[in-house]
Amino acid sequence: MKQLKAFGEFWYDFIVGDDWHVAVIVVAGLILTALLTHLASVNAWWLLPVLVFAALGWAVHRATAHYKS
């Protein structure tokens, strides 16, 4: 059980890393893109890049927000 937990933690750390919000934003972006493309017939190629840029900004902001001037 302990080894299974360590195995899971290794892969979580390997893929998701320090900020899980990034993974959530990317997955949500892909779901939204698929919904817009298939259900609303909108070729939403622009959506994922915008969310990826936002995810990076959010991640670096979160990592540095505790440094107060």
């Binding site: 990317v26 698929a34 070729n43 190629w45």
Partner: peptide, 11 residues
């Protein structure tokens, strides 16, 4: 981003 969006169906 490119492949993910393509996989989601965009052109």
């Amino acid at each position: 981003t490119f492949w993910g969006a393509e996989g989601a169906g965009v052109a």
